[in-house]
Design a binder for these strands. Structure first.
Lengths: 210, 210
DNA sequence: CTCCTATCTTGTACCCAGTACAAAAATATG
DNA sequence: CATATTTTTGTACTGGGTACAAGATAGGAG
């Protein structure tokens, strides 16, 4: 089980090649105009191998979705002692925005990415699914904080509000980008908006999560 | 263009027959285990006719989704003068719960319905889509209230919070039903929960929507 | 190096949702 | 009855995804 055995290396390489080829094709021609068979061809593997690595076609596009989930978990897990969960998440969003991270959507290159999503019903459904998974993850983390009382609706409620807020922040920035605004112009407003949105969240949730 | 011409009547009847047959099959055998061809057969129409009335298979299941959307709009539109939007929506949810409306999920028959959804990835995706549409609808209604300032993130943010809340309320009740609890036992808690959740919402949104 | 085993890959055949298009049936209209 | 319009249908097709078994490749033991 050596982590860099020949087998492991080849698998990683194959997976990466498929992902890269797919991303290139999607960006060039749109998600729905590229078939899995084409991707397999261009990556010199069989169609079945593609599905072996990426059970759904959408996962070829949202390849880095799991990273986003992990970012959330880490922000909560590694928060300073005494800092509230909402405070930690506010900090995360502010940091991402200041770093012009793709997830903050204050980055011109995000425009193209989002455009591809909007052009494809399948990808829009995939995005909803991804967001839903993030919410589920957050719910379990919140439940751990409040002490696992059975039938406590608060973790799910808080998670839903938090994810709804973050998603809306993202969508707001992307909408401006798609309207033609430059990321540099969106950025300052976005910082203020993050703070406004999290003020609202804090008012709703307060210290209910302990 | 008589509304009850022979043509109109036949169309309505055909559509209804397809929907009924489909619902029956879905409930009996699960969404994914029923093919559109089977539905067409059982309803004595061709497969193409099914797709003619219901462009997606999911729409055969979420047939009454549009009603839910309309319920939201109506509650806002017809609210008493001076009543806040959040107040009107709280009233709607309380009313639905008191009436043991299916959308409040305080009804034993909802259990079966939800079980079918949970058993089908396709239907879960469809549910996300439906919720997303409700949020979009609410966003435009909120935008109308705040006076259509361009680039105002508040309508979208408020709508996202409201929908997240309502969806969570629904899911919480259904989870208890699926855990085996009886709707009569869920009901009183649910009334209290609606009030708690809307208190949180009011704290977040307050009178920001005017 | 060699044989054996576990794992990865491939080919083939298939199912089903959804679309395109044109023919055919039913209804409306004069 | 005749003609125009709308609805329904048959046929053929595309593309995502699965089942299954055979083939290729790497790891490990002797």
């Amino acid at each position: 089980m050596d982590e860099t055995s020949l087998r492991e290396r080849k698998k990683r390489e194959t997976r990466q090649r498929i992902s890269n080829v797919a991303t290139g094709l999607f960006m060039a021609r749109g998600f729905d105009n590229v078939t899995v068979a084409e991707i397999a061809d261009a990556a010199n593997v069989s169609k079945m191998t593609v599905f072996n690595y990426f059970p759904r076609k959408e996962e070829l596009f949202f390849d880095r979705g799991p990273e986003a989930v992990e970012l959330l978990s880490a922000a909560i897990r590694d928060r300073a002692p005494g800092e509230s969960v909402i405070g930690a998440l506010r900090g995360l969003m502010l940091r991402l925005t200041e770093q012009r991270h793709p997830l903050s959507a204050t980055l011109d290159s995000v425009r193209q990415f989002v455009q591809v999503v909007l052009d494809s019903p399948t990808l829009q459904a995939g995005a909803l699914h991804l967001v839903n998974e993030m919410e589920a993850q957050l719910t379990t983390e919140f439940a751990a904080l409040t002490g696992d009382k059975p039938n406590d609706p608060l973790p799910a409620l808080a998670a839903a509000l938090v994810i709804a807020t973050m998603r809306t922040l993202y969508q707001h920035a992307t909408r401006r980008l798609l309207a033609g605004e430059r990321a540099d112009d969106v950025y300052p407003d976005q910082i203020a908006l993050v703070n406004l949105a999290f003020d609202m969240l804090a008012a709703a949730i307060g210290d209910k999560l302990g």
